[in-house]
């Protein structure tokens, strides 16, 4: 068993060593093949570019985070409410679920220009694109949660002569929480990507700086390759922060009782 589950120290050291090895390989590759920096910058050049562009990147990150947060919040709220309607009424589910699937099948690259046509360049379109990306996992998971209520617990509520509202409040909503949070986790990983893609397709620098997606295009067109790589670095950090936030929420809400969190002794 101990061979398959590395210790905590190893869990930190092994990926760190792998990263160092990959960076060394990167330098070696660049030196041996003499790759110019505008094609493949060295790691230290990327860090330097990130530092040089720090004010621009920081405001770009703020713009993107705002888009991601708004889109994510909209996806989670609308997703939860819609899932509730779908989960509580089989008729509504039969009527609407296939249509939601159709929407899900529509690629963002096609939806994006449509949003720009309707909402113009800028934040509203970016939020709409983020929303579309994050919305489906929330709906699909939460609906599943509302539907798969334990049969015996439902009978307990029947024996208590519970009203539909009571059943929703005390049984279905808390029971669907783990599913809802799973959907939220997926939406959380997608939200920064959605905001960057949205910014890439519908962003503008009007009234200041654009978001990370916009800066990507800008650096690319100027062939500022180290700065282009640096935007990737910023996007990674943003993604981790988002996932970290959702994981924290997941833990807050479930750690006291849910199987996924509870330590069995």
């Amino acid at each position: 068993m101990s061979a398959s589950s590395p210790s905590r120290l190893a869990a930190f050291l092994l990926p760190a060593l792998t990263a160092v090895a990959l960076i060394l390989l990167w330098y070696a590759f660049k030196a041996v093949l003499q790759v110019p920096s505008f094609v493949l910058p060295a790691p230290h050049e990327i860090v330097a570019a990130a530092w040089e562009e720090r004010t621009v990147l920081w405001s770009a990150a703020l713009v993107t985070v705002r888009g991601a947060l708004l889109g994510f919040t909209a996806a989670v709220t609308v997703g939860f409410l819609l899932a509730m309607a779908l989960g509580f009424s089989p008729r509504i589910k039969t009527s609407f679920y296939p249509l939601i699937l159709v929407l899900q099948m529509m690629p963002v690259t096609i939806l994006a220009p449509i949003f720009v046509l309707w909402l113009g360049q800028g934040l509203p379109s970016i939020v709409a694109i983020t929303f579309v990306i994050g919305f489906f996992p929330v709906v699909a998971n939460t609906t599943m949660g509302f539907i798969s209520v334990d049969r015996h617990l439902r009978e307990l509520f029947v024996m208590c002569n519970a009203t539909r509202a009571q059943e929703a409040r005390y049984l279905r909503i808390p029971g669907a929480m783990p599913y809802f949070l799973t959907g939220m986790k997926i939406a959380g990983t997608l939200a920064p990507i959605g905001a960057i893609v949205g910014d890439f397709l519908a962003g503008s620098a009007q009234g200041g700086v654009g978001g990370i997606g916009y800066m990507t295009i800008s650096y690319f067109s100027q062939l500022k390759t180290p700065a282009l790589f640096a935007t990737g670095l910023v996007a990674c950090v943003m993604g981790f922060l988002f996932v970290g936030g959702v994981n924290w929420l997941h833990w807050r809400l479930l750690h006291s009782w849910h199987d996924s969190m509870v330590k069995k002794e």
Binding site: D150, H152, E155, M159, C160, N161, Q166
Partner: peptide, 30 residues
């Protein structure tokens, strides 16, 4: 139903409610 109650197989408790909250549920609902 107001005059009877059912004890289910395998306890059938609500995992997210504490012991006192589980016992309280029928009183809360009525």
């Amino acid at each position: 139903r107001k005059r009877m109650f059912f004890v289910f197989q395998d306890a059938n408790l609500m995992p997210w409610r504490r012991v006192a909250e589980n016992v309280e549920l029928p009183l809360l609902l009525r």
